[in-house]
Amino acid sequence: MNLFLGIAIFVILWWLAFFTMLPMGAQSAHEAGEQYVPGAEHGAPKVHNLRLKALIATGIAAVLWLFVAWAISVDLVGMRPH
């Protein structure tokens, strides 16, 4: 696997993991039974924890990338020309 392919696969895996994690733990003011600020979006989360979610997404993407790199190196899927 060349450098460009490795980086592209990692970025795709990171975004997939990040978007999967975005709704986890999100709770709006309406769901919490609190008053919301006039003019604020009703569905906006109170606390988004983006930094933590980005770190966890990085860990998940790294583990998945290692598996994909291994699968490519041993030709698990049989994509190399004969």
Rank of each mutant, 00 (worst) to 15 (best):
M1C: 12
N2M: 08
L3N: 15
L3P: 10
L5D: 12
G6S: 10
A8G: 15
A8V: 14
I9T: 05
F10S: 00
I12W: 08
I12L: 15
L13Q: 00
W15I: 02
W15R: 04
L16Q: 01
L16H: 02
L16K: 00
F18R: 07
F19Y: 15
F19V: 09
T20R: 12
L22M: 14
L22F: 06
P23Y: 15
M24D: 04
M24H: 06
G25F: 14
G25R: 13
G25T: 12
A26Q: 04
Q27T: 15
S28M: 08
H30G: 13
H30F: 15
H30N: 15
E31C: 10
E31G: 10
A32Q: 08
A32V: 03
A32R: 11
G33D: 12
G33C: 13
G33N: 10
G33P: 10
E34R: 14
Y36A: 06
V37G: 02
V37A: 14
V37D: 09
P38H: 06
P38N: 03
G39M: 11
A40M: 11
A40E: 14
A40Q: 13
E41S: 11
H42N: 14
H42P: 15
G43Y: 11
G43V: 07
A44E: 14
P45D: 02
V47L: 04
V47I: 09
V47R: 14
V47Y: 09
H48L: 09
H48P: 03
H48N: 15
N49Q: 12
N49M: 15
N49C: 10
L50W: 14
R51E: 07
L52R: 13
K53E: 08
A54D: 10
A54S: 15
I56T: 07
A57W: 00
A57L: 01
T58L: 12
T58E: 00
I60F: 01
V63Y: 07
L64H: 00
L64K: 01
W65R: 08
W65Y: 07
L66R: 01
L66Y: 07
V68D: 04
V68G: 00
A69G: 08
W70P: 02
W70N: 08
W70E: 05
A71L: 10
A71C: 13
A71H: 08
I72K: 03
I72P: 00
S73I: 03
D75V: 06
D75K: 02
D75A: 06
L76D: 04
L76R: 08
V77T: 11
G78T: 04
M79I: 08
R80L: 11
R80A: 06
P81C: 01
H82V: 01
